[in-house]
Design a protein around this nucleic acid. Structure first.
Length: 280
DNA sequence: CCAGCAGCCTGTGCGC
DNA sequence: TGCGCACAGGCTGCTG
C-alpha cells in the first residue's frame, strides 16, 4: 500500500508530467473524496508537487494547493501526449476512466489526471496554502526519514514510548511515512521482535533499526514502490518491491536468513510478519 | 496525555 | 455455481 516510497514515486512522476499544466476543469464524480471549491484552482497552473509523509501537495501559481491522500487504494494517473505510447497496467488500472475513477482533472493540451480509488478511503482537498498547516494530517506529521528524522530524534521517539515498536514505527505523528510493509521489513532487517515495547530497545538496537528503516525505504524507492493492492505510479505502471519483501506477506514461507517459518500475528489491528527465531 | 480499537469501504478468497 | 462472510489496512475519533 502506498507508503513513503510509493508516494514519493508518484510525486516524482507528477513533478515530471504535471508541472506546467493548467487545469481547465474538474469532473468530480464522488463528492465524498473531493473537498473544497474547485473554482479556486480552475485556470491555475501547477508549479510544484511535494510529499509530506504519505500525503501529496500539488501547488498552483495562486494561493491554493491540492492536498491529496491516496490511503490504501487510490491512484493518480497522468495521461497526455508524452505518455500516449506508455501502457497503463491492465491488472491494476484497466481502462481510463473506469468505474473506480472518482475525479478527473482536465488539463490543457488534452491531458488528463485521473484519481481512481476502489475503497474510496482517499481524499483530495482544495485549500489555501496558508491553511495547509492547520490540517491535522500535516500539522501533526512526525519527522521523516531522509528529511528531518535524525538518529537522535528516532532514539527519543522510541525511548519515550511504551507501545510495541512496530506500532510506533507506523505512527505518523512519531515518524512520518513508514507503513506496514516497510515497518515489517525494517524490523526483520534489524532482527528485532515487532512486539517489543519501544522503550525496551537498547541504544545499539535503535541504531540498527534506524539504519534498517532507511535501507528498506531506499530499496522500495529503487524498485519504484511495492504494487500491493492497486498501487501504480503516476504513469499507471506497477512497482517492483513486492518481489523483494523480506517478511511482509510471507506467512508460512521460509525465513530468508535462517530458513525457519515466518509467522503472522496481529499488532495494533494490523497484519504483522516476522521470524520468531531471527527477531528477538 | 497515552494506549487501544471501531469505523470508514469494497474486492478477494475462503467455506459450504 | 453462487452465496455469505471474514479479512485487508491508513487514518480519525472515540473510549478507558
Amino acid at each position: 500500500m502506498p507508503e513513503l516510497p510509493e508516494v514519493e514515486t508518484i510525486k516524482l512522476g507528477l513533478q515530471k508530467y504535471l508541472v506546467g499544466h493548467k487545469i481547465l476543469d474538474i469532473d468530480v464524480r464522488d463528492q465524498k473524496i473531493f473537498k473544497g471549491d474547485k473554482k479556486n484552482i480552475i485556470n491555475a497552473k501547477v508549479i510544484d508537487v511535494k510529499r509530506v509523509g504519505k500525503g501529496l501537495i500539488i501547488e498552483f501559481d495562486n494561493d491554493y494547493v491540492l492536498a491529496i491522500h491516496v490511503k490504501l487504494t487510490g491512484q493518480l494517473i497522468y495521461r497526455g501526449r508524452e505518455t500516449e505510447n506508455i501502457e497503463v497496467s491492465k491488472e491494476k488500472v484497466g481502462s481510463l476512466p473506469s468505474k473506480f475513477t472518482h475525479v478527473i482533472f482536465n488539463l490543457d493540451h488534452g491531458a488528463n489526471l485521473y484519481y481512481n480509488d476502489i475503497r474510496r478511503f482517499g481524499w483530495i482537498k482544495v485549500i489555501q496554502k496558508e491553511e495547509l498547516k492547520n490540517l491535522p494530517f500535516f500539522k501533526e506529521m512526525g519527522p521523516e526519514p531522509f528529511k528531518d528524522l535524525t538518529l537522535d530524534k528516532f532514539k527519543k521517539a522510541i525511548q519515550s514510548s511504551n507501545i510495541p515498536i512496530k506500532v510506533l514505527l507506523m505512527d505518523q505523528k512519531k515518524i512520518g511515512g513508514v507503513g506496514n510493509i516497510y515497518a515489517n521489513d525494517a524490523l526483520f532487517n534489524a532482527g528485532i521482535d515487532p512486539r517489543r515495547k519501544a522503550k525496551t530497545l537498547s541504544e545499539s538496537e535503535i541504531e540498527e533499526l534506524y539504519n534498517s528503516v532507511l535501507k528498506v525505504l531506499e530499496k522500495g524507492l529503487e524498485k519504484g514502490g511495492a504494487s500491493e493492492l492497486t498501487y501504480v505510479n503516476a504513469l499507471g505502471q506497477t512497482g517492483g518491491y513486492q518481489n523483494h519483501f523480506l517478511v511482509y506477506g510471507r506467512e508460512e514461507e521460509r525465513c530468508l536468513r535462517c530458513g525457519g517459518e515466518i509467522k503472522k500475528i496481529k499488532l495494533g489491528g494490523r497484519g504483522t510478519y516476522f521470524c520468531p527465531s531471527c527477531q528477538k
